[in-house]
Each structure stands twice: as C-alpha cells, then as structure tokens.
Amino acid sequence: MGGDGYAVGLVTAEELHGAAEELAGLLVDTVDGGASLGFLAPLGQDEATAWWRALAPEVAAERLLLWTVRAQADGRLAGTVQLRPATTANGRHRGEVAKLMVHPADRGHRLAGRLLTALEEQAAGLGLRLLVLDTETDSPAERLYEAAGWTRVGSVPDYATDPAGVPHPTTIFFKALGG
C-alpha cells in the first residue's frame, strides 16, 4: 500500500530480526516523546532491540502480525503497528491492536491511519470480526481512533503509567469489522 511517498507492508519474522534496531530506535524516540507504550523512560536502545527481536517467534507463528510504513525514497522506517489475534477457542473472532507509533518527523502524513487500515483489512481477511485496543485518555491517539471509526467503551482510572511512571487513565476502544 503506497501513496505520498510511503509504503505499508506486513513484516515477516526474518524481516523483523533485521529491522529490530531500527524499530528499537522508533520505540525509544516514541517513549522519550512521552507516549505510553508499556515502557518507562529512559528506554535503552539495547533493551528496545532485544524486545523487538523477542517478538520474532510470535510473528513466525502468526500469533502476532506486524506492519511497518516506510518512506519509499530511502526505505526509512516511519511507523509501525501490531495485531494480536486472540487464541482462545471462544475468542478467535477478535484481535487486539497494539504499539501504533509514527516517527515525529513523519507525522502529518496520515500514516497512523494507513497502518490501521492495513491492519483492519488483514484482520477482516483472517475472519476477525472485532478489534479492541486501549490508549491513554486525552492523548492524540484517542482522537485518531475516534476519527477512524472506533467506538469508545469507557476509561479505567490509573490503568497505566506514562514513561515517567505517573499513572494515567486509559480509554478502551473497539471496532466491529464488516461481515
């Protein structure tokens, strides 16, 4: 999926291993910028690289799907998102969206929306009918999900901390997919 000089693609386990350092740099920058992604600051490059590499077996087993968006001119990583299809017998119709991030230098090009669209299309193709996610309440991401047609369920006080360790409420969203 391309346009405006960017291309979105699904990442294989082999590609993930090779891109782990670049993905780690994006994660470190995003956490340093204050995004609540499950990590505390300061997040080291080595720790972040190891975290990404540890995901390769899950990607290989298709328990985790991972997309990146790259600048077509130079192949530079601009963003990423993950989908975790549920594995329980009564939940195989749903999945969880996680770790949506776009590099600050690439914001304003609707890349987060493109990543979500790619994820939603693939999820529907896999037979998933329901997606869920959580994000920090009152964050820019919350507005993105609302604009992309996600439905707010509610918020949970002090659900997660920001990178400085300060608790914040989290808003839960869902999106029903066609079919």
Score class of each variant (00 low, 15 high):
residue 1 M to C: 05
residue 3 G to E: 10
residue 3 G to C: 12
residue 3 G to M: 14
residue 4 D to M: 15
residue 4 D to W: 10
residue 4 D to C: 08
residue 5 G to H: 07
residue 6 Y to M: 11
residue 6 Y to H: 11
residue 6 Y to D: 09
residue 7 A to R: 12
residue 9 G to W: 03
residue 10 L to F: 09
residue 10 L to G: 04
residue 12 T to C: 03
residue 14 E to K: 04
residue 14 E to P: 00
residue 16 L to T: 04
residue 17 H to R: 12
residue 18 G to R: 12
residue 21 E to C: 06
residue 22 E to C: 01
residue 23 L to G: 02
residue 24 A to W: 09
residue 25 G to A: 07
residue 26 L to Q: 05
residue 32 D to V: 00
residue 33 G to Y: 01
residue 34 G to E: 08
residue 36 S to W: 02
residue 36 S to F: 03
residue 36 S to C: 04
residue 39 F to W: 14
residue 42 P to R: 04
residue 43 L to F: 10
residue 44 G to L: 09
residue 44 G to Q: 06
residue 44 G to V: 12
residue 48 A to C: 10
residue 51 W to N: 03
residue 52 W to Y: 13
residue 52 W to I: 01
residue 56 A to G: 02
residue 56 A to N: 01
residue 60 A to Q: 15
residue 62 E to C: 01
residue 64 L to F: 03
residue 65 L to C: 04
residue 69 V to T: 09
residue 69 V to I: 15
residue 70 R to F: 05
residue 72 Q to S: 11
residue 72 Q to F: 00
residue 72 Q to V: 15
residue 73 A to Q: 11
residue 73 A to N: 03
residue 75 G to M: 05
residue 75 G to R: 05
residue 76 R to N: 01
residue 77 L to M: 09
residue 77 L to Y: 07
residue 78 A to C: 10
residue 78 A to N: 07
residue 79 G to A: 09
residue 83 L to W: 06
residue 84 R to M: 08
residue 88 T to R: 10
residue 89 A to R: 02
residue 90 N to I: 14
residue 90 N to K: 11
residue 90 N to W: 15
residue 91 G to L: 10
residue 94 R to T: 06
residue 95 G to T: 14
residue 95 G to R: 05
residue 98 A to M: 13
residue 99 K to L: 13
residue 99 K to T: 15
residue 101 M to F: 04
residue 102 V to D: 07
residue 103 H to Y: 04
residue 105 A to S: 14
residue 106 D to G: 00
residue 107 R to L: 10
residue 108 G to P: 03
residue 110 R to H: 13
residue 111 L to Q: 07
residue 111 L to D: 04
residue 118 A to K: 06
residue 119 L to W: 14
residue 122 Q to G: 00
residue 122 Q to M: 12
residue 125 G to P: 03
residue 126 L to C: 05
residue 130 L to S: 03
residue 131 L to T: 15
residue 132 V to L: 10
residue 132 V to C: 05
residue 135 T to H: 05
residue 138 D to A: 15
residue 139 S to R: 03
residue 139 S to P: 00
residue 140 P to F: 11
residue 143 R to I: 02
residue 144 L to N: 06
residue 144 L to T: 13
residue 145 Y to M: 10
residue 145 Y to L: 04
residue 145 Y to Q: 10
residue 147 A to V: 12
residue 147 A to S: 15
residue 148 A to F: 10
residue 150 W to C: 01
residue 151 T to F: 05
residue 151 T to K: 07
residue 152 R to D: 02
residue 152 R to I: 13
residue 153 V to P: 00
residue 154 G to C: 06
residue 156 V to T: 15
residue 156 V to P: 00
residue 156 V to K: 01
residue 157 P to L: 13
residue 158 D to N: 12
residue 159 Y to F: 13
residue 161 T to Q: 02
residue 163 P to G: 00
residue 166 V to S: 03
residue 167 P to A: 13
residue 169 P to C: 06
residue 169 P to R: 03
residue 172 I to G: 01
residue 174 F to V: 14
residue 175 K to Y: 09
residue 176 A to E: 15
residue 176 A to I: 04
residue 177 L to I: 07
residue 177 L to N: 04
residue 177 L to W: 09
residue 177 L to H: 03
